[in-house]
Amino acid sequence: MKKHLLLFLIVLLITFKGYSQCCSAGNPLGGDASNEGLEKNELKIFTSYKHSLSKYYYHFDAPYDIPNIEKSFYDFQNISISYGVFSRLSINTELGYFFNKTQEVKLTNDNIIIKAQGLGDMGVSIRYLLFKTVKPVSQLVISGGVRIPVGAFNEEINGATVPISLQPSSGALKFKAGIFYSRKRNDRKLGWNSFLFLEYSNTINQGYLVYKYGNLMQLSVAATYEIHQKLNLLFNTKFEWRAHDIRENEMIIESTGSKVIFLNPQLIFAFKPDWSFIVMADLPVYKYVNGYQLTNSFSFQLGIRKKFKFNKS
């Protein structure tokens, strides 16, 4: 069973040719690879590297041949710090850096590479543990916070500003909220969790740029399986809905917004007490985009997580 699960996961990661949201301004939704509440005086530090490659244009739910984009990709490093302030309340901050956010464009007479790098948005949120049980192991956590555009939003190449979608920061203040529930029986290796995430963006009003990102909703349901005492597999299915972006005079941008279903497998390896190594991928299995949009082939993330416990007892 364990071998089959691992084999299935590896084959999926190697062969999948999926499609998902292309390069968009600001950080990818990162977090600390967990939405759980923390115990009082518990500190969790998570850092991860993410690579995403986009190659294909879609029109509605089918590929559409537009030869102008060769590829688009980014490499992103994220750090997230969470701390249990009270027994039920924890605070989380996260910040990321784009090593590059690149698009290769084929134009009539030449191939152009547009590239930006810099600090992304900063996330600050609180999580409140509504309830927790020991048998079965379960918890219900609500969270809320903001994503602050502290990073680079005026990147340029030879005096020409790069497009919004390639800027490391989104340029917009965003509000986010979530609710997380997990449950696992003590005598079972299989558990499940679910997560609902909502994000609302303020309008950017900067010079000639008036822009509002569409609202975002994500609903995830995951099965967790304990392969080994130190190795857990999380098989997450995620539905993502993005509304249209809006520009000046309340004009809806037709080629924005989408509905996507992702598979988001994760392997969590606890190689030492309080240390975990995490591998995850985003593999969209269905996507419907409004208008014509660049979609990506895959993204994967490698991360490491360390917990510190400062309890005096």
């Binding site: 340029e156 030879n158 005096g159 020409a160 500003t161 000639y208 740029l209």
Partner: peptide, 12 residues
């Protein structure tokens, strides 16, 4: 020279 636009791409 510094060029910017609200929508679109540019190359100097």
């Amino acid at each position: 020279f510094h060029w910017s636009t609200n929508h679109g791409s540019m190359q100097s």
